[in-house]
């Protein structure tokens, strides 16, 4: 497992985050409208905006390795883009890392 692990599919970016790397920070890219609220509320400066755009033409947030899974950004996001899951709840077969 690399230090900053990311999984992607056509809809989601999923980052392995948290002090014990047991949380998954998820960006549901095509719901994002690029407003940057998440970037500005994150207390750990863990988000940056992408350089490429989504299908709908917006920039979206990228996690840079500092995320602690504190959930501030997902409460602030107006578009239900961001979420934090427990790793064991979202892995195939439900096994822990």
């Amino acid at each position: 497992m690399t230090e900053h692990e990311v999984s992607r599919n056509e809809r989601f970016d999923a980052y392995l985050v948290g002090k014990r790397s047991n949380r998954v920070f998820v960006v549901d890219r095509d719901r994002c409208k690029g407003c940057r609220i998440c970037v500005s509320v994150c207390p750990y400066q863990a988000l940056e905006m992408s350089r490429e755009k989504t299908q709908r033409g917006y920039f979206f947030p990228i996690e840079n390795g500092n995320c602690t899974a504190c959930k501030q950004c997902l409460y602030a996001c107006p578009d239900f883009v961001l979420s934090v899951h427990k790793l064991e709840e979202v892995t195939v077969g439900g096994e822990t890392a």
Binding site: S7, I37, P78, F80, L87, V90
Partner: peptide
């Protein structure tokens, strides 16, 4: 570790009408 993408919906996804999202409201 393999992520099951079908489980990655929003934390409140079961309380939302997913097929209506993204909503019509402006950015921000």
């Amino acid at each position: 570790m393999e992520i099951d993408f079908s489980k990655l919906g929003h934390n409140l996804e079961d309380k939302l009408t997913s097929k209506m999202l993204p909503h019509i409201w402006c950015s921000g």
